[in-house]
C-alpha cells in the first residue's frame, strides 16, 4: 500500500446524510474481479440518468470540483453493504480524504486498507467545511486540517495513523506472530468444519 501523503485541494461538498455503499458503487459494478477502474462507477446513479446522460445537478458533475481529493459528507457515511468496491471507487476517482461527522464501521475499516484517510469531526466543523470554497490542506502527521480561516484538529488512533503514514502491509505484520497463532490453534476447542 502506498504511504499516505499530505493532501491539498478544494473540498467536494456532498451535503447528504446516510450515504450508503449502494449509492457509492451500485451493485451492477460489483461483478468485476479486479480492484482497479472503479472510479468511473462512483455514485453512478447520481451522476448519470437512465440513459447514461450526465445529471448536471449532481455535485461531482460540477467542473469546479474537478481534481478535488477531499470529500466532505453528512452523518453515517458508507453505511450498508461491506463492499470494499466503494473505497476502491473513491480512491480511483481521486479522493484520498473523506470527512464526515460519522462513518459506518466496515467502510471506516476498509478505508485504512486502501490508503484512504477517513476523518470524523463534530457536526459544526463538517458544516463549515461543506461551505469552504478555498483550498484545504490535510496534514496527517500533525492531525490538522488547515483552511483559509482556521486550523481544525482531528483525532485518529495512533496505530491507524502509523499504518497510513508507512503504507504497511497488514498481512506481513501478522505473519510476525506466526508462533502465537500456532499456539492459539493448539488450544482451540472449536473443531474444523470438514
Amino acid at each position: 500500500m502506498k504511504p499516505f501523503e499530505n493532501v491539498k485541494s478544494i473540498v467536494t461538498p456532498l451535503d447528504m446524510v446516510n450515504v450508503d455503499t449502494d449509492q457509492i458503487v451500485p451493485k451492477q459494478f460489483l461483478k468485476l474481479v479486479q480492484k482497479s477502474g472503479f472510479g468511473k462507477f462512483l455514485f453512478f446513479n447520481w451522476r448519470y440518468d437512465e440513459n447514461k446522460n450526465i445529471k448536471s445537478d449532481f455535485i461531482l458533475n460540477d467542473s469546479k470540483y474537478d481534481g478535488s481529493k477531499i470529500l466532505v459528507a453528512g452523518d453515517n457515511f458508507g453505511c450498508g453493504s461491506s463492499r470494499e468496491h466503494a473505497v476502491w471507487a473513491l480512491d480511483d476517482y481521486g479522493f484520498s480524504v473523506i470527512i464526515s461527522s460519522s462513518f459506518a464501521d466496515i467502510f471506516f475499516s476498509n478505508c485504512f486498507k486502501n490508503g484512504i484517510l477517513p476523518i470524523s469531526l463534530d457536526s459544526k466543523s463538517v458544516e463549515k467545511l461543506l461551505q469552504e470554497t478555498n483550498s484545504v490542506e490535510v496534514d496527517l502527521e500533525n492531525q490538522i486540517i488547515k483552511t483559509s480561516s482556521e486550523d481544525i484538529s482531528f483525532e485518529i488512533n495512533s496505530h491507524k495513523k502509523k499504518i497510513l503514514l508507512e503504507g504497511l502491509d497488514d498481512i506481513a505484520q501478522t505473519f510476525q506472530f506466526e508462533d502465537k497463532i500456532c499456539a492459539f490453534e493448539e488450544k482451540s476447542t472449536i473443531p474444523s468444519v470438514l
Binding site: 463492499r83 488512533n157 501478522t174 505473519f175
Partner: peptide, 22 residues
C-alpha cells in the same frame, strides 16, 4: 462480523484479524 475484501484476504492468509474491541 461482516468484513471487506482486504480483510477476507487477511483471514485467508492468517486465519486472524486485527480488530478494535467494539
Amino acid at each position: 462480523l461482516g468484513i471487506g475484501t482486504s480483510e477476507v484476504e487477511h483471514v485467508l492468509a492468517s486465519q486472524t484479524l486485527w480488530l478494535e474491541k467494539p
